[in-house]
Design a protein around this nucleic acid. Sequence first.
RNA 1: GGGGGCGUAGUGUAGUGGUUAACAUGUCGGCCUGUCAAGCCGAAGAUCGCGGGUUCAAGUCCCGUCGCUCCCGCCA
Length: 586
Amino acid sequence: MFKSHTCGELRAAHVGQEVTLAGWVNLRRDFGGVIFIVLRDRAGLTQVVVSAETAPDARTVAAEVRNEYVIQVRGVVRRRPVDQVNVEWATGEVEVEAHEVHILNTAQTPPFYIYDDAPVDEALRLRYRYLDLRRKRMQRNIILRHRTVQFIRAYLDQHGFLDIETPQLFKSTPEGARDYLVPSRVHPGKFYALPQSPQQLKQLLMVAGFERYYQIARCFRDEDLRGDRQPEFTQLDLEMSFVHRDDVLDLVEDLVTNLIPAVVPEKRILSPFPRLSHAEALARYGVDKPDLRFGMELVDLTAALAQSGFGVFSGAVQSGGQVKGIVAPGCADYARSEIDTLTEIAKGQGAKGLVTLAFRADGVKGSAVKFLSEGELAEIAVRTGAQTGDLVCIVAAEEAVVGAALSALRLTFRDRLALADPQLLAFGFVLDFPMFEWNAEEQRWDAAHHPFTMPRPNTYEAMIADPLAVLSDAYDLVCNGYELASGSIRVHDPKIQMDIFRVLGYPEDEARAKFGHMMEAFSYGAPPHGGMAPGIDRLVMLMAGENNIREVIAFPKTAQATDLMADTPASVSARQLKELHIRLDL
RNA sequence: GGGGGCGUAGUGUAGUGGUUAACAUGUCGGCCUGUCAAGCCGAAGAUCGCGGGUUCAAGUCCCGUCGCUCCCGCCA
């Protein structure tokens, strides 16, 4: 070994010991006669002192050293003078007085600071990802990710889950995200697809009788990126046999409730996790992934304003829509430009406009005030609970638009007014999703979750006649405004499965071609089963306090799905294409 | 596919259409035996992302393009 200790472990108790350290030069401070080197490795920082008086040869070498050189130091652990203890460091009580310094490797001057987490252009970070990963923030995040996965593996092992791998080369599925395809050399013109999730395979593992399965599974979806979406990402995929919905939820809640204090003890959670129906989430927050850290819930004003003389309100109600509002505390003094910004946010979600009512000491202000009666204004104040100084934001439109607009505004106020406790991880479950969604563009029903989702027991009978009335046994885990996991109880009865395919408009032969292996498997004694798949990247992102999953992925891709370090995707040789029977049409 | 933001020494930034493009930091050299983002002195370092255009004059205005980024669509 090149080292006897790490740079993070020396303490006063080691004083007097002869040690060997090895690592990177974090910083060097050269006083001529004495040189201080801050040595860094994964474990931490240790100050090395090289004195011309006691170690002239070592000092000569130390004078040549530059930032990010890889060096090895032999020396004696010394207690620092009392007034020179560095209280910021775990090793700050001591330093190593070097008598030997060896340069193991030199380094070019890095393109950005390693010893400081100061912001750097994203493209530069990604181009030199291996250097970015040396920085404290990324080391912390990647280590946190490791601890999280280790905890999950141990927990699931203790609870009887088996870690089973499933193929990366599998079959394209007709619904869902765009697949990443892999051409077959052996079978000209045929393709594998990289899994969007191991969904079918984990269900087949239940048919196979493993009863409890999990996998830290890489998933691939060829869709455009977001801050919380990468083309390849990692799920904790788990599936259980002989369970009802609450068995799955209870297990995931217990896992997460134990995980958080174990790996991020400074964070707090809600306990128990709130469980609300999909309909309730939409009604109260306007979205199916609410940030539960703060209130500012949507207030329904539809009944109060249905007969309003203000056509924006009454018109929306007459055409089957809603009028709802939120109260922004203390925002009654917002300037015109700020109101315009809020209006743009609402319009960005499809709203035609935004009605704002500023409850000021000298009355209610806002461009719509003149269209509203005294009684209506009073009614709005009562229903919303608006106080003097508050700003009420009202959207009138169809239900989906009202929810989208007000929830976007709610998150805007969250950030502006710092309404959400950054140390709180507000996990919650959203339940009872609709089974089907009407796809107006293609004039057919889509599965809201996926076609293997079991309908809620008491709603199944209505399925063929009225798909919209069917609720599914699907559920999401949400946290701080993100969807962290989705899951469901699965269909294990081939007859119900065929009914679902019928609603989805799959002819029986097509269903058999796409999912025949599933249907056949279910006919050989499939147990009742269900599962869930928390996104590891998003979970670690939230635990780390980051707002982009790039920060918890060692080698992520850009928003354009490229890798700037390796310059990927890239062209391949004509020979490779020919082997794969592929001709480009660009 | 659409929309917004950003792009100026290695890095982070400043820069009313008008001198030699500024500041900090880093880099290099010198001095320095107790610093901890050390200090002091000195030096080098910029085709202002790229290509067009407007103008007597463009880092600055316009068009296009490339890169990064956020959002909408998309994401069973």
